[in-house]
Simulated scan of single mutants.
Amino acid sequence: MSAVRVLRLGPVPYAHALRVQERCVAAARSVAAESLVLSEPVGPVYAWGLRGAPGPAEAAGLRARGAELLPVRRGGHVTFHGPGQLLAFPVLHLRRRRLPLRRYVGALEELGLRLCRGLGLGEARALPPPFTGVWVGDCKICAIGVHCGSHITSHGLALNCCTDLSWFEHIVPCGLEGKGVTSLSQELGRHIPVEHVLEPFLDCFREVFDCTLVFSEEPGD
């Protein structure tokens, strides 16, 4: 059973979590270490992957609302990251795990499903492509977007715990017209902060990826 180092950053800027992730990717390439970076964004950010960059007028409007805009190295269109959201960036060796990329994305969906159902959201489900992620009805509760280079993963999933969902109203989340966004707090009818989800998330991660977890106090500046 492999060991995965866990870095719990807590509330930090989204860009800071990305920098920590990139150091973990470098470590994975040099010493074959696997990591899991967990964080909660402290400010509003709109990020997009290889597709779906906002046009100049849209970008100006989003900045005017006080949000940061960042292109990132992952698949997918524009989405929102902000307070009340759990970000999980697994840095794993897919070749060593003998795990094809599509099955890896499916494992992230299974992780999100187990977590949501374990928290009492039995109606959480996965949908066929192109509707990647975890859904409650026609609303996405957990977005998934990954990057894989030299068989090493980065980015991962964003779970809405107690996120202010009004930020999603200014974009087409993940490029999916006619679909909504929801959160654990909205669906369960009570406040679910990120810190209440961390331990159940780690339990599900252990199960899905068949690993042990080693916790690191490294701040990752």
Rank of each mutant, 00 (worst) to 15 (best):
F209A: 12
L159F: 00
T153F: 04
R74M: 02
R23I: 11
L38E: 05
F168W: 10
S154Y: 01
Y46D: 00
G118A: 08
A64V: 03
L184R: 12
L36P: 08
T212M: 06
F168M: 03
P13H: 05
V45C: 14
W167H: 11
E58W: 01
H151R: 13
R74Q: 01
L86A: 06
P128T: 07
V146L: 11
G10M: 04
A126F: 01
R190D: 03
E123T: 15
R65I: 02
L9P: 11
A32E: 14
H170S: 12
L176S: 05
G122L: 14
M1I: 07
V20A: 13
L127S: 01
Q85D: 09
L202D: 02
G180D: 02
Y14C: 02
V105M: 09
C161L: 03
G180T: 04
L157N: 01
A53V: 05
P129N: 04
R98A: 15
E218M: 02
G61A: 15
L101F: 13
F215R: 13
A143N: 09
C162N: 14
A60E: 15
P128S: 02
A64W: 11
G112R: 09
P200F: 00
E34W: 11
P11H: 06
L113S: 10
G66Y: 10
F201A: 10
A59K: 07
T153M: 01
H155D: 02
A124D: 00
C162T: 13
R96Q: 13
R117G: 05
L176I: 15
P100E: 12
L69Y: 06
L99E: 15
G120D: 09
R96V: 07
Q21H: 11
E123M: 11
A60F: 03
I171N: 00
L101S: 10
F201L: 13
S30A: 15
R125N: 00
R74Y: 04
C142K: 03
Y104T: 09
R117A: 06
G112F: 04
L18G: 06
T163L: 00
C24Q: 15
G106R: 12
C162L: 05
P219R: 13
I141K: 07
E195M: 04
L7A: 08
G178A: 04
C204W: 00
H147Q: 13
P193C: 10
C162W: 01
V194L: 02
D221C: 06
T79C: 13
S216T: 13
V194Q: 08
G84V: 09
T182Q: 02
M1F: 02
F80Q: 04
E68F: 10
P200Q: 08
R5T: 14
P173L: 06
G112P: 11
F168S: 11
G156W: 02
H93M: 07
G84Y: 02
I171K: 01
